[in-house]
């Protein structure tokens, strides 16, 4: 018997509508749960990298259309998510996308890497989740040496997984890009750019033009002077980069002052000790 085209189209229509409804229902029923589960996966990865960090602060930022989740721990440790699709310098993985959680210490050294999700070949590329492979990243920073897989470059830092050079390469370039991102956007050193042409303690000089574009300071700050382009830059930014050691000296001076006030001006200002005056380590 020949089926009429109307019946065929109708049947397909009904089936696809039912399938669509089932999927929509399934999505609605599971959406929140999946988001919650993902959050727990991230939290677990952070705990694995920084076991001592019980309650990290969570925030997110958008990069290349994707969310980067940032977890800050007391003491300056930062863990954040990164993916192979976030930077052009990252070599493509074998399948889909790899998402990782990178833990970085305040000095820009990798403290640990965990794979959050991936779709590499089971048994081969999937070995990127192996602690033996991941632990190689611990203690590395951008100046540690050549960020490459040993198979590509004998001087490379990372021993790739046999049979999965593509996945290893993707991981290596991704962790490197993540560190660069950390230095650019997340590190403690990331503060308003120095006013143009000034030399910072760590020796970097910021071209005048870029500094002005990046930084527009409040105009009401006392001691602010206009720079060459008429932008007001407060004195405290012209003078120094934020530095805990200097802050400590300031703290001491304030306490000193309070003591002298209480004593009715009889006590003399104390001399700063040698420890206070030794220059801070260059970071």
């Amino acid at each position: 018997m020949q089926d009429s085209p109307v019946k065929m189209v109708g049947t397909l229509l009904v089936i696809t509508i039912l399938a669509g409804a089932a999927l929509a229902g399934g999505n609605m029923a599971t959406r929140d749960k999946i988001a919650e589960a993902r959050k727990q996966v991230r939290a677990r990865a952070v705990r694995k990298i920084f076991p001592a960090c019980r309650k990290p602060s969570e925030s997110s930022m958008k990069v290349a259309g994707q969310d980067i989740w940032v977890y800050r721990c007391p003491g300056g440790n930062v863990a954040f998510t990164f993916s192979t699709k976030m930077d052009k310098s990252i070599s493509s993985p074998y399948g889909g996308e790899i998402k990782i959680m990178v833990g970085v210490g305040p000095s820009g050294t990798v403290k640990g890497v965990q794979v959050v999700s991936h779709s590499e070949t089971p048994g081969l590329g999937a070995n990127i989740t192996n602690p033996k492979f991941l632990n190689q990243f611990k203690g590395l920073n951008l100046k540690s040496g050549k960020w490459a897989v040993k198979k590509d470059d004998p001087a490379g830092l990372i021993d790739g997984i046999s049979g999965a050079t593509i996945s290893s390469r993707a991981m290596t370039t991704m962790v490197k890009a993540a560190l660069e991102f950390f230095n650019r956007r997340l590190s403690k050193g990331h503060r308003p750019r120095l006013p143009g042409g000034m030399k910072a303690r760590d020796g970097r000089t910021v071209p005048r033009s870029r500094a002005i574009r990046r930084y527009s300071p409040p105009r009401h700050v006392p001691g602010a002077k206009p720079n060459t382009r008429g932008v007001m830059i407060p004195d405290y930014i012209r003078r120094r980069v934020h530095n805990p050691q200097i802050d400590r000296i300031g703290q001491k001076a304030r306490e000193d002052m309070r003591r002298r006030m209480n004593s009715g001006g009889k006590e003399l200002p104390s001399k700063p000790s040698d420890a206070d005056l030794t220059p801070p380590p260059v970071r």
Binding site: A22, L23, G26, A29, T30, K33, I34, A37
Partner: peptide, 9 residues
């Protein structure tokens, strides 16, 4: 797809 979603949740 449903199996995938419910498993993930």
């Amino acid at each position: 797809t449903l199996v995938d979603m419910f498993m993930a949740a």
